[in-house]
Design a protein around this nucleic acid. Structure first.
Length: 809
DNA sequence: CAGTGAGCGAGCTTCCGCTTGACTT
């Protein structure tokens, strides 16, 4: 029996707070939301003014029972969930579900977990804010209506099991539209001219000065004209301009910026970042990791000041207050920072250490002084020409925060060298070492990484810190988006070099367009997006969330009634759903590529029941012959596949001949190219075998390899039952029985010794299979391996190919 | 596991946001 029961959302928080409060307080956690809308019949009584039906989630039953019991015994229940829309709703659900009494329930909030803040909160309790709760209910119900009404339309009109939602569908749209921009992008080339000069100072020391021509030439002719004009030219320093500038540190981490920096600096996926951060949080090393606030507590600011002074001196301290720019931020927490800033390192595995280091540096740097820079611009005259070269340099006058931390950018091209310029004076004469024109190409827009997509969503005010990572995972699990690395292609570029008054021409090769862990839309992602834009343009609008958020805010301050807001949205929306179901065509992404030269029949591609496919001929009435079908291969897409590539798809299956008097056939199945022989299948080796060219000899090798593998796989069969086998798998020996697999206990030394009865016993005692909810996966076809050689991810690997030295006189 | 792509059709799929384990066929 306790006097006071305090309920917070997170168990780690509960542990910390308990220390600050006396013995008369018991602190427990609700583990987030405890109730949600029923899944049956929408969980909303639409006809009855959208009355929601909430049920306790199955995984929360235990918590609720325990809290109920404790609440009954306690004299006062303090609900201390977060001070935002969701937190208020959690408080209300607790109040309702635990059947609390108003007079013995107190609602308290605090933004930082310090003794003072918490004691202060206890001194100033309030009531549950019904308006805020209603804003959350409106949010929840709107999302349910959108998701559960549109998804079934997709099942009917596109493909079963698909999903649509306010957040995920827009996330996919961003990726689809970016991909189309990239597909239609036409790169243009231009020539950039750089020059290298030497200058000898008074002491006779030779120094180098690199400069660039601001003007770009679009053709080779113009470039050559320019270079030719520079023959026998003299170069002088024309002008020197020095300009001071400041650079400010970035704000402390929020969830989104942490995900971005961990991606850029550490190569983490967004979900990996969150997992590692969670561990740091649970160990008490960092503050809460799901936040949109950039605010630091007074205590944190004070320790930052002390720590920076101690490490670098008082000159380096500049205490700053940052304010949130992102739309819809609710700021229930602090920014993500180390709990104790004087702790420079943590124990733990390497990723935890690295992420902590990043957080520590970012937090410290955010309270350090500006870096003072001096930018120098030197203009260089060309005696034979009106153009001027420009040399730029940047000098750090005072490091400030740069001593600790510099935020990275997503721009891969931006690796501007920090060149220190030599001391020169106006009028100095320069010797030209070379003037070189290099062919460059305009860049297509970049593909999204997981983290840059999160940034974009945050900029649009779509999604919350707790959902960024799950959303990114969902759109991949649904098969709308794939994360892939791809090799680039080789491209030639020209270099024209003026050395010793002669022009040398070279053609070099560079690798371009290589991608490392980028997001690509799948065909189904594109088709679904097109369908949704066509029929549900308002939901797909990038401003939809921002607009409904405005209304939620109105509800939160009591200026709008939530049922009215939902009603105004729902009725036209629902009518549109009905209309779409009735009138819209099936969306298949069909594209007619042309005609088969052999049969003259039409060849088209579209989404089929099992994914993207090509079709030869149509099932017209009166036409006896059925159309032929073939799945598209990995890397082929509805929007970009050519007629020739599609024709090739119909060249399979190929009959290779006989082996042991049985046919050997090569074809492509759900799991890629394979050889079939005597009812057995063997996969072709990736990147080695090509189903179009593989010969009988090689196919036999694969068949034999497969036989050997099967021999190794099989450990024991039983006469009693052919369906029961002991096999060797990726995780060691296991029992296979009636298409189900069962693991063996670790202490079994030799599985061969198991008897039939032993096996049945193991099967019986095996834990019940869970519902196959997690087992569901995107089509196997899309599961491209992320492996890629390290060298291919480098942007520019230039290798000289041929050297055509056609020096002009 | 494996060449499917209509036919007959039951029953299922699905949202966003708040939390942490359980457990890798």
């Amino acid at each position: 029996m306790v006097e006071n029961l305090v309920i917070v959302e997170s168990p780690a928080k509960a542990k910390t707070i308990e220390k600050f409060l006396g013995d008369s307080f018991l602190v427990k956690s609700s583990f987030g939301h405890i109730r949600d809308l029923d899944k049956k019949d929408f969980g909303i009584d639409i006809k009855n003014n959208f009355t929601p039906k909430y049920i306790v989630s199955t995984d929360k039953k235990k918590v609720v029972t325990e809290l109920k019991k404790l609440a009954k015994e306690a004299e006062t229940v303090w609900i201390a969930s977060d001070e935002d829309r969701e937190g208020e709703a959690i408080a209300w659900h607790l109040f309702e579900e635990l059947k609390l009494k108003k007079e013995k329930t107190k609602r308290i909030v605090f933004h930082e977990i310090t003794k003072d803040a918490i004691l202060n909160a206890v001194e100033n309790p309030r009531q549950i804010d019904d308006n805020l709760v209603n804003a959350q209910q409106a949010r929840r119900i709107l999302d349910r209506l959108v998701g559960f009404e549109i998804s079934p339309v997709l099942w009917k009109k596109v493909k079963p099991s698909l999903s649509a939602g306010r957040v995920q569908s827009v996330a996919v749209r961003l990726i689809v539209e970016r991909e189309r921009e990239i597909i239609s992008f036409e790169s243009e080339s231009f020539f950039k001219v750089i020059a290298q000069f030497t200058i000898t100072d008074e002491k006779g020391v030779e120094k180098t000065l690199k400069a660039e021509l601001p003007k770009r030439f679009s053709t080779k002719e113009e470039t050559l004209d320019f270079l030719t004009s520079c023959k026998n030219a003299e170069y002088h320093i024309d002008d020197i301009v020095k300009k001071p500038s400041l650079r400010k540190p970035a704000a402390p981490f929020t969830t989104s910026t942490l995900q971005q920096e961990a991606s850029r600096k550490l190569g983490f996926s967004v979900s990996q970042t969150m997992t590692v951060a969670q561990r740091l949080y649970e160990a008490g090393n960092i503050t809460y990791m799901r936040t949109d606030s950039v605010n630091l507590s007074e205590t944190a600011l004070n320790t930052a000041k002390e720590e920076i002074t101690r490490l670098h001196g008082a000159d380096y301290v500049k205490i700053r207050k940052y304010s949130t720019k992102s739309k819809g931020a609710q700021e229930a927490h602090e920014a993500i920072r180390p709990t104790y800033l004087n702790k420079h390192k943590v124990e733990g595995e390497s990723n935890e250490k690295r992420l902590y280091d990043l957080i520590w540096k970012r937090t410290i740097a955010s309270q350090m002084s500006d870096a003072k820079l001096e930018k120098t611009n030197i203009k260089i005259n060309i005696s034979t020409n009106e153009e001027k070269f420009v040399a730029t340099g940047e000098m750090i006058k005072f490091e400030g925060f740069l001593k600790v931390y510099l935020e990275s950018t997503d721009d891969e091209e931006q690796k501007q060298e920090q060149s220190l310029l030599p001391q020169v004076n106006v009028g100095d004469k320069l010797e030209s070492e070379f003037v070189k024109a290099v062919q460059n190409f305009t860049h297509r827009p970049p593909r999204f990484t997981e983290a840059s997509l999160v940034k974009k969503l945050e900029d649009l005010g779509i999604g919350r810190p707790s959902t960024y990572a799950p959303t990114i995972t969902t759109v991949q699990n649904r098969g709308y988006v794939v994360k892939e690395s791809r090799d680039g292609v080789q491209r030639q570029y020209e270099v024209l070099n003026l050395i010793d008054d002669a022009i040398e021409e070279e053609t070099l090769i560079q690798n371009t367009g290589a991608e490392n862990k980028k997001l690509f839309p799948s065909d189904i992602g594109m088709v679904v997006t097109d369908f949704l834009i066509k029929h549900f343009s308002n939901i797909m609008n990038y401003n939809f969330t921002a607009e409904v958020e405005k209304e939620f805010d109105e509800i939160a301050v009591g200026k709008m009634v939530w049922q009215e807001m939902i009603g105004k949205f729902y009725h036209p929306f629902h009518a549109n759903v009905e209309k779409t179901l009735e009138e819209s065509e099936r969306e298949t992404g069909e594209r007619i590529l042309g005609n088969d030269p052999k049969t003259g029949k039409v060849i088209l591609v579209r989404i089929g029941r099992y994914g993207p496919m090509a079709q030869l001929g149509e099932s017209a009435e009166g036409d006896e012959e059925k159309p032929k079908f073939a799945s598209l291969r990995t890397g082929q897409h509805l929007e970009t596949i050519t007629l020739e590539e599609a024709i090739d798809l119909f060249k399979l299956p190929r009959d290779l001949g006989l082996y042991e008097d049985k046919k050997v056939v090569v074809a492509i199945g759900r799991f890629g190219p394979y050889v079939r022989h005597d009812g057995k299948f063997a996969s072709l080796h990736k990147d080695v075998d090509d189903p179009m060219t593989i010969d009988l000899e090689r196919a036999i090798v694969l068949v034999e390899e497969k036989r050997e593998k099967d021999r190794l796989k099989h450990i024991k069969s039983f006469e009693e039952d052919a369906e029961l086998q002991i096999l060797n798998g990726r995780w060691g020996p296991y029992i296979s029985y009636q298409k189900e697999n069962y693991r063996l206990a670790k202490d079994i030394e030799d599985p061969k010794t198991l008897s039939y009865e032993d096996c049945l016993k193991i099967i019986k005692s095996a834990p019940k299979k869970k519902t196959s909810k997690v087992a569901k996966k995107a089509p196997a076809k899309k599961k491209a391996p992320a492996k890629k050689k390290a060298t291919t991810t480098k942007k520019k690997t230039t290798t000289a190919k041929k050297k055509t030295s056609t020096a002009k006189k």
